[in-house]
């Protein structure tokens, strides 16, 4: 197990220069995520166009894995249909936990494969995906109720 398997160049780059960083206003959906164990926090805002995720931004602070994972995620899901986002999440989850071999080409997201060798870091990488799910649910309900922050614990 090498450190460079975890901290690949793509990850270090997205940590240094996170893509789609910020806040959408107005937004169709919004959710906050929190990893109380390490204090990582992030916030996702998104806009839909029909059943597609048209635009999203994330904001927050956390370790390189959580920041890079969120940044890579925003690039990967932009423009996807909601069901495609869900399918991609399942693939990424399998990749992170080592429980399933991704059947699709995950592109840059594959850089996160080293995380499975560091079990305590899996939650860092998956927090953004859980938060995105909550933001999509928020949009689907039309902001019906205040969304509880997503917690990894």
């Amino acid at each position: 197990m090498e450190l460079t398997d975890l901290y690949r160049e793509v990850i270090l780059d997205h940590n240094r220069h996170p893509r789609n960083f910020g806040h959408l206003d107005p937004a169709d959906g919004h959710a906050d995520g929190h990893n109380p164990l390490c204090g990582d926090r992030l916030s996702i805002t998104l806009r839909n166009a029909g059943d597609r995720l048209e635009e999203l931004r994330f904001k927050g602070n956390g370790c390189a894995i959580s920041m890079a994972s969120a940044s890579l995620m925003t690039e990967a899901v932009k423009g996807l249909r909601h069901d495609e986002v869900e399918t991609l999440f399942q693939q990424v989850h399998g990749l992170l936990t080592g429980t399933a071999v991704p059947t699709a080409d995950l592109g840059k997201l594959a850089a996160l494969s080293g995380v499975r060798e560091f079990p305590v870091r899996v939650k860092c990488a998956s927090l953004c995906w859980h938060t995105l799910q909550a933001a999509l649910a928020d949009a689907a309900s039309g902001h019906a109720a205040p969304v509880e922050p997503v917690s990894t614990e």
């Binding site: 390490c38 370790c63 390189a64 870091r121």
Partner: peptide, 9 residues
């Protein structure tokens, strides 16, 4: 460098 990354390194 986030403290958790520091911890891992």
């Amino acid at each position: 460098v986030h403290p958790h990354d520091l911890g891992t390194v």
